[in-house]
């Protein structure tokens, strides 16, 4: 018996999901962050964020298609993390790293928080 493992399958799937997002195909939720609107796929959000997993597995909330985040959340931080969810690439600038970390903490994305903290330590 044999099997063929397509080593780049995960990144090919993620690229296609991001293409669907950018063309607004089958997006099923709008995340509102301080009046900025971000369209996305619930399944991708809940696969990447503990907060969205909790929201969309809650019978009372799973059918919501507009979610307003806490007013303290930064739109720039959320944009960086949403792009990360769909690309695996986390862009870090001096001007936004704290907003990204705070937003990641809020979204319950602990691995991103840990990595940002290690990045900060090494860059100090």
């Amino acid at each position: 018996d044999s099997c063929i493992q397509f080593t780049r399958h995960a990144s090919d799937v993620l690229l296609n999901l991001n293409r669907l997002r950018s063309r607004d195909i089958l997006t099923d939720v709008i995340i509102v962050v301080n009046r900025e609107h971000f369209r996305a796929h619930k399944t991708v959000l809940m696969a990447c964020s503990g907060l969205f997993y909790t929201i969309f597995t809650d019978q009372m909330k799973c059918n919501m298609n507009i979610i307003n985040l806490d007013p303290d959340v930064s739109p720039e931080g959320f944009r960086v993390l949403l792009d990360f969810m769909y690309t695996s690439r986390l862009s870090l600038r001096d001007s936004s790293i704290m907003a990204v970390m705070t937003t990641a903490l809020y979204l319950q994305m602990e691995h991103v928080v840990d990595t940002c903290q290690r990045f900060l330590k090494t860059s100090e």
């Binding site: 018996d1 063929i4 493992q5 799937v13 669907l20």
Partner: peptide
């Protein structure tokens, strides 16, 4: 996949969705 020979394929695995139609 214990005991199964695994061949690694480095090429693209699925179609690529275009940026726009």
């Amino acid at each position: 996949y214990e005991g199964v020979t695994t061949i690694k394929e480095m090429g693209r695995s699925i179609h690529e969705i275009p940026r726009q139609d």
